[in-house]
Design a protein around this nucleic acid. Structure first.
Lengths: 165, 165
DNA sequence: ACAACCAGTTGCAATCCGCAATCGGTTTTG
DNA sequence: CAAAACCGATTGCGGATTGCAACTGGTTGT
C-alpha cells in the first residue's frame, strides 16, 4: 500500500487503490449489506476478514476519499463509515464484476441472486440504487418513490432464496 | 493463489481470480495493446511487470479459462496468447474501472483518452469492440464494417494526443 | 461491580512480491 | 558456421504483505 505510482493509466491507478482481495468486498458489504460499523464489517461478512486487515483497508479507503468516518452519537466508541460519492460510483464496477462472476464462476444460488437481478436491471437500476445510497450515506434528499426500493428488492429476493433452501 | 474458496459470492469469486495488481493489467494489454506474446507483455507495458510474476499470472489465467495459449507457427519458442469469450467479457469490467479512475484519480492525458472515449461510447461501443476482439482472438467471422474499427479509433486518438505533447 | 462489547493494535509465522541473474533452446546476423 | 540476440520461462533471495490469535484501553448494559 505504498503510493509508488506505476503509471497514469486509469485502470492501473484504480488497481493501485482497489487491486487486492479485500477492499472491494468491504465496499460491497457497505453497499449491499448496509454495514456501517467496524464490528459489523468484521463479523457479518461471508468471508471473515481479520481485524488488522480491515483496519488497514478502512484507513486506505479513508485516505483515498472513498469512504468517510464519523462518530456515532449513540455510542462514544462506535464510528459510522459512509460511502462518498466517489465510493458510490464504484457500484457499476461491482455490478459488472458480479455479472461476470455470475456467468463464469461457481456462484451459489443464494449469493448469486442479487447479481442476477442487478444484471437484469441494467444501468437504470444501478442509477436508482446509487440514488438510494446517496440518501443513506450522504443524507441526500429523498426523491419521490413508487414501491419498494432497489435495496429492499434485492434483500427480499435474497431472503426468499434462503428460505427456500 | 491457492484455491481456498472463501464464499460463493460472485464478487468474491471474481476477486479471488482477478483481485491483484497485475492480472487485469495483463488483460488490458491484450485487449487494448494487442499484446499476444510473453515478451510483448513483459516489455511493452507502462508498468514493467517482472517475468516471474507474468509467468505466474499467465498460468493462472490459463487455468481459469480466461486466456488460451497456442504455439506460434513462425517461431518454435513463441506462444500466442488469446482471450477466450470469458476473457473478452471482462471488457465491461475494465471499462467501468477505467471510467471510475478517469473521474477520480490523477490520470495522465495520454493514458486517459481511451478511457474517455470508451466511457462516452457506452455499452454499445463496448459491444462493438468485443465483437472485434472475437475476430482477432477467437477467429470469429468478420462482420460488415463501416469506417474504422473501435480499436483503430482508440489507437488513433491515443497517438494524436501523444503527438500533441 | 461485572460481563459483554467496542474499535482497533501488536507479535509472529507464513506467504507473496519484485528484482536480478540465469537457464536451455531458437533464430538472426555477420 | 559461429557468435550474438532473442525466446519463454525459472531460480534465489531479501523485503513487504498477509492472516491468525491474543491483547489493549475504553464504553455500555445488567
Amino acid at each position: 500500500m505504498t503510493d509508488a505510482q506505476r503509471s497514469g493509466c486509469p485502470i492501473n491507478l484504480s488497481l493501485e487503490v482497489l487491486g487486492d482481495k479485500w477492499s472491494l468486498l468491504i465496499i460491497r458489504d457497505m453497499m449491499f449489506g448496509n454495514r456501517r460499523h467496524f464490528r459489523e464489517l468484521l463479523t457479518k461478512s461471508e468471508e471473515g476478514i481479520s481485524s488488522n486487515i480491515l483496519a488497514d483497508r478502512l484507513k486506505t479507503l479513508l485516505e483515498q476519499g472513498i469512504i468517510t468516518r464519523e462518530d456515532d452519537p449513540t455510542h462514544k466508541q462506535k464510528g459510522i463509515y459512509s460511502l462518498t460519492e466517489q465510493g458510490i460510483e464504484l457500484l457499476p464496477v461491482l455490478a459488472q464484476m458480479a455479472a461476470w462472476g455470475y456467468r463464469y464462476l461457481p456462484v451459489t444460488e443464494e449469493l448469486g441472486i442479487r447479481a442476477r437481478l442487478l444484471s437484469e436491471g441494467g444501468p437504470k437500476m444501478w442509477a436508482e440504487f446509487m440514488d438510494e445510497l446517496r440518501e443513506s450515506h450522504l443524507g441526500a434528499k429523498r426523491r419521490k418513490r413508487t414501491g419498494p426500493s432497489v435495496g429492499e428488492r434485492l434483500q427480499a429476493a435474497y431472503e426468499s432464496v434462503v428460505k427456500r433452501s
